[in-house]
Each structure stands twice: as C-alpha cells, then as structure tokens.
Design a protein around this nucleic acid. Structure first.
Lengths: 130, 130
DNA sequence: TTCGATGTTCGCAAAACGTCGAACAAGGTA
DNA sequence: TACCTTGTTCGACGTTTTGCGAACATCGAA
C-alpha cells in the first residue's frame, strides 16, 4: 500500500469537494466521521464491495475531505474538518446539516452503531468536528 | 416549449442539489443569479452551445435551484434562494462564498458585465467577465 | 400567412462515474 | 518460511453526464 497523497489546505478545489460529496455513500461516510473521531477502515460498514469502498475513500481523500493514516497493515480515516472550514467556511457544516435533514447516506455506519459515544450526543445535532 | 416542472421546496434532495452544483458552468450561473435579480435567458453569456446552456439550466431547475418563468417566446431565470435556504440552511451561502474564493465559473456572465450597476465600480475590481 | 427570434428536444459521441471481482502488495503471525 | 489479514489497484461493464448540431415548437412581427 502506497502512502496516499493529501492535498494542501489551500489546494482544495470547490468543484472537487462538491464532486466528492455528490454521492450518498460518501456523504454517509462524512456523516460517520463528523464527530471528529478517527475511524478504522474495517470499522466502517458500507453496503458495497471493499474495492468500491476503497474507491470512495480515495475520492474523499483526493478532494481533501478526509485524511488517511496508516498503521501496519491497517489504516484509519479522519475528517479534515478544520482544513475544510478554513478554506470554505461553513460549507461542511451546511452539508452535514442538510444531510441530516435529508437522511442521506444513512446506510453507512460503523461497527456497533455509535461506539464509544457516551450518549451525550443529541440525535439531530450536526457536529462539525472535535 | 413546455412549461417546465419545478420541485416543491420540501421535495428538494441534497444529492440532486450537490449534483447540480458539481459543474463550473452551473456554479457560474448561480453566481450570476446570486444577487437575486431575475435574468433573461439571452442575457446570459456562457461559452457553450445554446443546447448545452439549455441543458444546464434544466439541471439547475430540476434540482430546485432556479425557477424559470416564461413570457411570450423568451424566458427568465431566477435563483430560488429562499426555498433553498429554508430546506438547507446556509448551504447556498456557503457554496457561493466558496465559489467566490475559488473563482469557480468566472467565465459565465451576463451581457454588459454587471448591468444596471451605475458605474460605481473601480476599473481594477474583479469583474466576472465580458 | 410567412418569417425571424427564442429556447427545447433529439440523436449522437466522448468522457466520467460507480460497481464488481480478481490480482496484487505489504505487514503480522505461525 | 509459509500463510493470513488488510487495503489498493486493475480491467471490465453499464450508466450517467457533458457537449454538439440539427430539427422542432412557439410566439411576435412584418
């Protein structure tokens, strides 16, 4: 596995970002990562083949929406909420809010539902990061 | 010319909206319409064939981003900013702000630059085009 | 009624996209 | 060493999107 390329914050392109978000599965992934926590690849539950999931994660990474870290043979994904918000203020939050309203990508999840979430999260409250 | 279908405000789909905005020309059109003024079809200056422009305007209309009004043989386009903001608060504004930063769709304009803007524009100020 | 202007619709072609399974690469483990 | 696990890459397939020009429909004007 090669180490993937992550675009610099000032390199992010709006069209790339919107293009990456133009897919229910990818929006679902972003929603899962919206709490700011890093997630393991294998932890993600998406109803597609793993090659397809790999593709979607690559699109998100190439657009600068997520960051991928590698550890041994497995890797972890994280939302680049700060970078995104610095370059396109409010965009991610608006999309996450809209995705919540529209329930986009709800078939994407993680093992065990919302693990390690100590129940201090209101269901409807979009949370940009951290 | 048939009268086109406009989706109801509560019918708007986030994926459709993001899909419609995932194109520099369409983002440019939205930017032109962002001031809330209605524009004539023929007033729009876009570097594509008219059949292609018709297509882009249809995508925007079908997504619920614009409204098209017909008057005799010509028609007028308008941004559905209110409807959009009611359903997806902040989304349009964030995209417009990001588009400004990224200068997306700057090759889209209207006849006479920014018409009816009474010469209070400094020559060096960034001008969308034409 | 005939003509011109204005958009829309209809093929058509090229490119991009989402999806899959198979093959592969790399790190852990036995 | 051989083997297993974890993701990525590759090639293929069908669908969608973008773009064009030509043909069409409709309205207003001559």
């Amino acid at each position: 596995m090669k180490r993937a390329r992550h675009p610099d914050p000032d390199e992010l392109s709006l069209i790339d970002v919107l293009g990456a978000l133009n897919d229910p599965i990818r929006v679902g992934l972003v929603r899962v990562l919206a709490d700011g926590r890093e997630r393991g690849w294998g932890e993600l539950r998406v109803p597609v083949a793993k090659s397809t999931l790999s593709h979607h994660l690559r699109v998100l990474r190439d657009a600068g929406i997520t960051r991928t870290r590698q550890e041994g043979t497995r890797c972890f994904v994280e939302l680049r909420g700060g970078d995104l918000d610095a370059r396109f203020p409010g965009l991610l939050g608006a999309v996450l809010g809209a995705a919540d309203r529209d329930d986009v990508g709800s078939h994407v999840g993680v093992v065990g539902g919302l693990p390690e979430a100590p129940a201090d999260r209101k269901p409807g409250a979009p949370q940009i990061e951290r």
